[in-house]
Computed example of a mutant assay.
Amino acid sequence: MNLSLENIGKQFSFEGTVKEIRTLGEGLINDTFFVETAGESPNYILQRKNKYIFKNVPAMMENIHKVTTHLKKKIVQRGGNPRRESLTLIPTQKGNLYYQDAEGEYWAACLFIEDAITYEAAHSLELARQGGKGIGLFQSMLADMKETLVDTLPGFHNMRYRFQQWDDTLAKDSAGRKAKVQEEIGWIKQRREEMLAFWQKAETGEIPTRITHNDTKISNILFDENGNILCVIDLDTVLSSICLNDYGDAIRSYANTGLEDDKNPGNVSLNLEIFKSYTSGYLSEALSFLTPVEREHLAFSARYITFEQVLRFLMDYIDGDNYYKVKYPEQNLVRTRAQYKLLTSMEKHYTEMCATVDTIIHSF
Rank of each mutant, 00 (worst) to 15 (best):
M61W: 08
N50S: 13
Q100K: 10
L87D: 02
S86P: 01
A121D: 02
I113P: 00
C110L: 05
F34L: 09
L46S: 02
I45Q: 03
E62Y: 01
L46G: 07
F54N: 01
N63A: 07
W107Y: 05
R83V: 01
Y98I: 09
H123F: 13
G104M: 14
P82G: 02
R83M: 03
A102G: 12
A59K: 06
A116D: 02
V76E: 09
F33G: 04
C110D: 04
E40Y: 11
Y98F: 12
L71M: 06
P42W: 09
M61T: 08
M60A: 13
Y44S: 00
Q77P: 07
I113V: 13
G80K: 04
A59C: 05
I64G: 07
V76A: 01
R48G: 08
N96S: 12
Q77V: 02
K66C: 01
P82I: 04
T69A: 04
Y119K: 11
L97A: 06
A109L: 01
K73P: 02
F54H: 03
D115R: 15
L89V: 01
S41D: 09
L111E: 04
P82C: 06
T37W: 05
A121W: 10
E85H: 10
K49L: 14
T68C: 05
A108S: 13
A116V: 03
K51H: 15
G95L: 06
K73D: 06
G80T: 11
A38H: 14
L46V: 10
I113D: 07
F34D: 08
I117G: 14
I90K: 00
K74Q: 14
F112L: 09
A102C: 13
T88C: 03
T88D: 06
L46D: 04
E85W: 01
A116G: 14
H65I: 11
V67Q: 07
S86Y: 00
K74S: 10
Y106I: 08
T32P: 15
I53D: 09
K49C: 04
Q47D: 13
A122R: 05
I90G: 06
Q77S: 11
A102M: 04
A122L: 02
R84C: 06
K72D: 00
Y119I: 09
K72V: 10
R78M: 12
H70E: 04
L89Y: 11
E120N: 15
L71H: 07
A109V: 02
S41H: 08
G39D: 12
I45E: 04
N63V: 10
E103P: 12
M60N: 03
K49S: 09
I75K: 08
A108M: 08
K74I: 05
E103K: 12
G95I: 12
E40F: 15
T37M: 04
F33R: 05
I90L: 05
L87V: 00
W107S: 03
K94G: 10
T118E: 14
E85G: 00
S124L: 04
E85C: 02
R84D: 10
M60C: 14
E105I: 13
